[in-house]
Design a protein around this nucleic acid. Structure first.
Lengths: 342, 342
DNA sequence: TACTACAACGAAAACGTTTTCGTGTTGAAA
DNA sequence: TTTCAACACGAAAACGTTTTCGTTGTAGTA
């Protein structure tokens, strides 16, 4: 086990000073050609690589960005990570991934860990608990300390920073409009509680679409689910009591639970009831019937977030502050859980 | 934007030396009580947190571990990450996640990046291309430099390091034995090419089980798939030609493609053909019919890997080298894609 | 008084870099 | 011979810590 080669060791071995070695390796014209070549050859031969930590300390940049997500076992978030990783790597950055487990405390802890020099900036999607509490002091603190922050997906209005979101309202509208277009009259909504911003916004899209088509909103056809755990039972209960011909669910799981319930009641999807989900995951694609969904392009979201963050990081401090919000448009992927358009 | 507080600034502010501040904050008895309290109060009030980078440089440990996986958009790997993250955090470590995209070059690049001080050790699952090439010089180099390495899932015999694997042979055997038990006679195998070690091992399990039950192995009933992309077509082609009553697929995707094909041929799952997959993902659970699978506990694998690595990291160098291989046992989760046992 | 002992603190090195600012050696111009 | 660039290199500071080893000042002892 040979310890890592350092400038100091090279200097000693070649009987020159540390500064000479450093300069030679960085092709400084200060160093004579002969010496330079000798040093470079030596370094190459013994595979010298500068120590990142020392560089970080010197430059006061770590060249790594931290991403904190509520949960990783979730297709959408992994595609986002994938996107972040891709552009980060292209720009010479590393990615530190932390999980908040949807817990406020873990989110704060993670941020504190990363803020002490481990990371140049953050990409973050808020924990459910954080949104519920409405306590964002940790975000504000990070920003005050000069750490750029990009919020994605689960964002919050009153923090001034870059944001990358999808247009949930329009996404929801598209879905419901499609249901209307294929002839659905009694369209149910299965959503989450309102403090999860996406639930709220998609609900708005649902209502908007109905109103635009002259259909009055029936609160009776709206189910708001608090706990993921008992979602299946709640959905079953809900759908049993209603007579609907279309369902818009704000995520894959709800959509699939809905389909199961509907089928168990002896009705057919899509012949009797059409179902549309949100988030285009593996599940939607391979479920039978495969799911028509509003697709949010996680990869794109990740890419845009990383680009936004790195832009801030590499901007000269003289340039003035400004914050962007990028809206990544949604698509509607039509598959077999909806009747075809006439 | 206030810059970060440092020992130096505290020292200046309180008109003492840097060493005094450092010692006071670490509760050294060298410092008089009065001074100590004053310094601690100041630090607390202005929320001083030591700079991780400086600590890393000083201690020559980063307290972060790197995990390199072939792809993140894959339920199994995310559960592994989740497990790693969990125990890493408990032990005060951060997790750097890198993606190799199944590319040899990216894997090497990632390791080089992380090896230069960013990370104290590695957790790694080999890229497909790496296994194909059989080139492991980057692993050996890392080990030689004194970086502990834990290989998981896709491991390779001839590297001496800690390993965490599942017993693929036994896993495969369990699945096929189950098929035999429920009365299947003509059992097909849908596997990957042999250089993917898991494919090879699960194939061995398949053959072993057949032989133990006195059924001769028919190579005609074995399909080896090279490219994920055209797997669906290949499976369709394959199953169309064969007459089988049981299918063992080495992953979820193959299993689901098989079910689709079977259903399209007008046969019923599980009544006419029983299907078992490998890896217990979201897909298996929610697919209709839900999939009977061999479950590999990704979370457990991640936890064990992290534990193994951290153990190595915190071991005093005097203790002698030894390498463990932990085998995480598989389970068989029976659902609706197989007939019930009589 | 002269010494010792201890308490309380500071200086400096070290981790591995980069960079600024010398400094000594050349060769050529005056 | 002197003077002055240009050249080639080295010393040292800085990034933010921790830690070893002084260095004070004071009190206690003989």
């Amino acid at each position: 086990m040979k310890p890592k080669l350092t400038l100091k060791k090279i200097a000693k071995e070649l009987d020159v000073s540390i500064s000479t070695v450093s300069k030679a390796l960085r092709d400084s014209p200060e160093i004579g050609e002969e010496t330079r070549e000798k040093i470079k050859a030596f370094a190459k031969h013994y595979n010298y690589k500068p120590n990142n930590i020392a560089l970080s300390l010197k430059n006061r940049k770590t060249k790594t960005i931290g991403i904190i997500i509520p949960e990783i076992v979730h297709h959408f978030f992994t595609t986002v990570i994938s996107g972040v990783e891709k552009v980060a790597n292209e720009m010479g950055y590393n990615v530190l991934v932390c999980l908040s487990d949807n817990s406020f405390d873990k989110e704060v802890l993670n941020m504190e860990m990363l803020a002490n020099g481990s990371t140049d900036g953050f990409i973050l999607s808020l924990a459910k608990e954080t949104m519920q509490k409405g306590d964002y002091h940790h975000l504000i603190e990070a920003i005050n300390q000069g750490m750029p922050l990009v919020l994605f997906d689960r964002v919050v209005e009153d923090i001034s920073c870059d944001k990358v979101i999808i247009d949930d309202v329009t996404g929801g509208k598209k879905a419901v409009q499609y249901l209307v277009d294929i002839g659905c009259k009694k369209i149910a909504l299965i959503s989450t509680v309102d403090y999860v911003s996406v639930g709220k916004l998609r609900t708005k899209g649902y209502k908007d679409a109905l109103e635009e088509n002259g259909i009055s909103v029936n609160e009776d056809l709206i189910l708001k689910i608090e706990e993921m755990e008992d979602s299946e039972a709640e959905i079953e209960q809900f759908l049993k009591e209603k007579d609907v011909d279309g369902v818009f669910a704000v995520n894959e799981h709800f959509a699939i639970s809905a389909i199961k319930t509907i089928q168990e009641q002896g009705k057919k999807v899509p012949d009797d009831v059409s179902v549309i989900g949100f988030t285009d995951g593996e599940l939607s694609k391979r479920f039978i019937p495969s799911l028509t969904t509003v697709s949010q392009h996680g990869m794109r979201i990740g890419e845009e977030s990383a680009r936004l963050l790195i832009e801030k990081l590499e901007r000269t401090p003289s340039e003035e502050e400004y914050y962007k919000t990028i809206i990544v448009e949604t698509g509607l992927v039509t598959r077999n859980s909806t009747k075809s358009k006439k």
